[in-house]
Amino acid sequence: MNTPRDPGLQPERTLLAWRRTVLGLVANGILLLASGHGTSDIRLGLGIVVTVLALACWVAVTAVYRRGLEPSALGSERVLRLAAGLVLVVGVFDLYAVVTR
């Protein structure tokens, strides 16, 4: 007999984990913006790019959650690789900002 799967709080926990990740990315983007203000157009540009990408992630994650899709939609290999790549790029940007300070 096939019984419907009860996701419990898993979708909510998944959404909160994604939001924590995005908030960290937004904070990094804002710090890059602040460090580039008046000194370097490169840092300012990197801060804008990181902030916009992080906010786009926030919107996408919220849209998936509101549509009621399975949490696995956020845990697919493609999405996880994209998020890991974004975090890696932000880390490189932050390293650049620290080294050139």
Rank of each mutant, 00 (worst) to 15 (best):
A54R: 03
V89S: 13
V89L: 10
C57Q: 08
N2A: 13
V79Y: 11
R66W: 15
A84V: 01
A73G: 02
V49E: 12
G29I: 14
R81V: 02
G85C: 08
W58F: 01
I30M: 05
L31T: 14
A54D: 02
L33K: 08
V64R: 09
E70L: 14
T51W: 03
S76P: 06
R20V: 05
A84M: 13
L74F: 11
L32H: 02
L46Y: 00
Y96T: 00
G75S: 08
L82Q: 12
W18K: 03
L32A: 10
V98I: 05
G29W: 04
V89I: 03
S40R: 14
S76Y: 11
R66L: 13
L31M: 15
G45P: 11
L25N: 02
R67N: 06
S72R: 12
R66V: 07
R5C: 09
G36D: 05
L86Y: 05
A54H: 02
V98N: 14
M1E: 04
V92N: 10
L15W: 01
A27I: 07
G47H: 01
T14S: 09
V99L: 10
I48M: 06
G8E: 05
V61F: 02
V87P: 01
S76W: 11
V49G: 08
G8P: 14
L69S: 11
L46R: 03
S35W: 14
P11I: 00
L53W: 06
M1K: 12
T3M: 11
L31A: 11
V59L: 07
R20I: 04
N28M: 15
D94I: 04
L16N: 07
G68A: 11
T3P: 06
Y96L: 08
L25D: 01
L69R: 15
L53C: 01
L55C: 08
A17Q: 09
G85K: 14
G47V: 12
V87D: 10
I42G: 00
T100P: 02
S72D: 09
L46T: 00
L33I: 12
V50F: 09
D6I: 13
W18N: 01
C57A: 05
L9F: 08
G36I: 11
E77C: 12
G29H: 03
L46M: 05
L88A: 07
M1N: 05
L32T: 12
L44R: 10
L55I: 12
G68D: 13
R43H: 10
L15R: 05
A73K: 08
A73Q: 04
P7E: 04
D94V: 10
E77P: 06
L33Q: 06
A63F: 15
D94T: 07
G68V: 12
V90I: 09
I48G: 00
